[in-house]
Computed example of a mutant assay.
Amino acid sequence: MSISTERQEEGGWSTLFLAWAIALAATLGALFIGEIMGQAPCILCWYQRAFMFPLALVLAVAVIQADRNVWRYALPLSGAGLLVAGYHVLLYYGFIPEAIVPCGKGPSCSDAKMTIFNVVPLPVLSLFAFSAISILLLIGRRETVR
């Protein structure tokens, strides 16, 4: 195996590992906020969890198996979560009218307790996590297509 091939494989594994680490951190963060801090998630947060939690497992298996084709089944999960998170951020900042707000019932993400360090709202963190994972999977895809 040539040095450039080894570096490509190492680069593919490191992007995959980083994507998994982000998914794991997001999953553990959501569990901590919900179970330890006692903050109940809103409806849209539940949808985002429905995409992030399996993504953490899928990427963990892919890291262990060094599956460089994981983008085929992880990118749809990440993309769907990205869409929900993007919609949630638009709702959070008021770009979408109140009449079509699905998280009007139950807990609200606009509460001050739903921010990290009283600055970054949880929907924005979710958007960043899904964006980063999607970008890393696309980078990994590009490396496998070569």
Rank of each mutant, 00 (worst) to 15 (best):
I139S: 09
A132P: 02
W13C: 11
C42N: 15
L136V: 00
S78W: 00
G11R: 11
L28D: 02
F53Q: 01
W46S: 05
Q39W: 13
Q65V: 07
C109I: 02
P121K: 08
G34R: 05
T5Y: 06
G81C: 05
V119G: 08
A62Q: 06
L28T: 01
T5I: 08
I64V: 09
S4A: 13
G81I: 00
P121W: 02
N118K: 10
D67C: 04
L136Q: 08
M37E: 13
L83E: 07
P41N: 03
A25F: 02
N69L: 14
L31W: 00
I100G: 05
P121F: 07
L91V: 03
F32P: 02
V101R: 15
S14Q: 10
L18S: 13
P54G: 08
Q8I: 13
L77Y: 04
A80E: 02
S14Y: 04
E143D: 10
L18K: 05
S4M: 12
V84L: 06
S4V: 12
Q8D: 11
Y92I: 03
R49F: 07
F51S: 03
M114V: 01
V89F: 10
A85W: 01
V120R: 00
A25D: 00
I36K: 03
Q39H: 13
I139N: 06
T27M: 01
F117T: 03
G94M: 09
D111Q: 11
A132H: 00
Y93H: 05
E6N: 12
L122T: 04
S134A: 15
W13F: 15
A30F: 01
F32K: 02
A74S: 13
G38P: 06
E10A: 15
T115H: 15
P121S: 13
Q65W: 14
F53P: 01
I133H: 06
D67W: 09
T144V: 15
V124P: 03
S110F: 07
I36G: 02
L137V: 08
R72F: 11
V124F: 09
A112W: 14
S126W: 04
K105P: 12
G94Y: 11
M114I: 02
E35Q: 08
E98M: 11
V70N: 05
I139K: 08
G34A: 08
Q39K: 14
L136C: 08
L136N: 06
V120I: 15
S110N: 13
G86F: 07
G81S: 04
L82Q: 03
A66W: 14
E35W: 03
